[in-house]
């Protein structure tokens, strides 16, 4: 009787084993797919890791390149300002010469008027006087030249003012550099996490940790822009005017 019971148990165990095998047969393709997926993914992750590392290595080069661009534009701007100074100096000299010439014209006219009064009143003398006057430089012509020189001087000075763009763009480039350096730090930190597998234990970074902002005492204004409209100056003027009569707003803001 006991033999029959044992055989029944044996058959039950064999059935269980059969069930395990048939489950195994079903799961094997899934496991195979998972292994295939891992085999494909690992090189991909390595490629991503290498790409990040390569990008990180390239970043200082980009940053130096931007610094070089800023230095080059500053040098070029200085050269332009030097030339503008020379031109302005030459215009000043021309104006001085012109003024001196103008005084001489007035004096010549006075002397000529005296000479003219002493000449015999003949047709020939009249013709000669008229011819002389037609060749003589006039005060009006000098005034025209003086005006042209003044306009040229103003235009040259406007070039100087437009060169403020160099300072503003250099601040914009400094902001880009700061951004690049921040990205490099974050990528370097990411590579370090990937290599040390620290990311497994890390909690996801806070949104604030990912944000890049200008340092408190930065040497550049990240919002610098070359805007020739008077809008910003008008706002400043209005605030200056209002705060001169009321200090309350300032005190409220900084108390």
């Amino acid at each position: 009787m006991k033999k029959v019971t044992n055989m029944t148990e044996l058959f039950e165990k064999l059935n269980d084993l059969k069930a395990v095998f048939s489950y195994g047969q079903k799961i094997i393709p899934v496991l195979q797919s998972l292994i295939d997926f891992m085999r494909d993914t690992v090189p991909l992750l390595e490629t991503v890791n290498n790409s990040i590392a390569e990008s990180t290595r390239q970043i200082p080069k980009a940053s130096h390149h931007i610094t070089d661009v800023t230095s080059a534009t500053e040098l070029a701007t200085t050269e332009i300002l030097d030339i503008v100074d020379v031109i302005s100096g030459e215009i000043d000299q021309l104006e001085e010469n012109l003024n001196s010439e103008k005084e001489k014209i007035v004096k010549r006219k006075e002397i000529f008027a005296k000479l003219q009064s002493q000449l015999p009143d003949t047709d020939e003398n009249k013709a000669l006087v008229e011819e002389y006057i037609s060749y003589n430089a006039s005060v009006e012509a000098h005034a025209e030249i003086a005006e042209i020189l003044q306009n040229t001087k103003n235009n040259v000075f406007n070039i100087t003012l437009s060169l403020q763009v160099q300072d503003i763009t250099s601040q914009q480039l400094a902001a880009v550099n700061h951004l690049i350096e921040n990205v490099q730090d974050k990528l370097a930190s990411l590579i370090n996490d990937l290599e040390t597998n620290d990311f497994q234990n890390d909690t996801p970074p806070e949104t604030d940790d990912l944000r890049i902002s200008a340092p408190q005492n930065s040497t550049f204004n990240p919002d610098a822009k070359y805007d020739k409209s008077s809008e910003n100056q008008d706002i400043a003027d209005s605030i200056v005017k209002n705060t001169k009569t009321s200090q309350d707003e300032i005190d409220k803001l900084f108390s």
Binding site: N232, I235, V240, I250, L253
Partner: peptide, 11 residues
């Protein structure tokens, strides 16, 4: 300066 926002001017 290039800083043209109200808070900067007040500061």
């Amino acid at each position: 300066t290039t800083r043209g926002v109200k808070e900067d001017i007040l500061e």
